[in-house]
C-alpha cells in the first residue's frame, strides 16, 4: 500500500516511553509495548504536553503533565483529566523499519 510511510527504525524504540516522529510535519508519538508498535498524536488532548515524554503503563500512556491516560490501542481517554480521545495511527514493522498509514 502506497499509504505506508517509513518513519523510524524499530531499533530506536524502547519499552516504557515513546519517541517523537514528524512525517510530513505531523507530530506523532511511537510506542513499543511487548514488541508491538503503536502510534498516536503526540500532543495531549488536555494539557500542552508531549505524550512521547509520558510513561507507558500496560497498554496505556500516562501524560507527563497531569497524569491523565489514553489507551494506545484505541486512543480512548481512560483517566481524567483526559476526556477527549487521542488520534491513533495504524503502524507496522517491516524489515526493521516502522511504517505508519498516514492516509488513515
Amino acid at each position: 500500500m502506497s499509504n505506508w510511510t517509513d518513519v523510524a527504525a524499530e531499533a530506536d524504540l524502547f519499552e516504557g516511553a515513546g519517541i517523537p516522529v514528524a512525517p510530513g510535519g505531523r507530530d506523532i508519538a511511537l510506542f513499543s509495548v511487548e514488541g508491538e508498535v503503536f502510534a498516536t498524536d503526540n500532543l495531549c488532548t488536555h494539557g500542552n504536553a508531549k505524550l512521547c515524554d509520558g510513561f507507558v503503563e500496560g497498554h496505556e500512556i500516562e501524560c507527563p503533565f497531569h497524569q491523565g491516560r489514553f489507551d494506545l490501542r484505541t486512543g480512548d481517554a481512560t483517566l481524567p483529566p483526559c476526556t477527549q480521545p487521542i488520534k491513533v495511527w495504524p503502524a507496522k514493522v517491516e524489515g526493521g523499519r516502522v511504517y505508519l498509514n498516514l492516509g488513515a
Binding site: D53, F65, H66, Q67
Partner: peptide, 20 residues
C-alpha cells in the same frame, strides 16, 4: 501548569514522575 477541577481538586502536575 498545575491543573485543578472546579471544586479545587488537583488533577495532576507536570513531570510528577520526572523527565527521561
Amino acid at each position: 501548569q498545575w491543573s485543578y477541577q472546579p471544586d479545587g481538586t488537583l488533577q495532576g502536575v507536570p513531570f510528577r514522575r520526572g523527565v527521561r
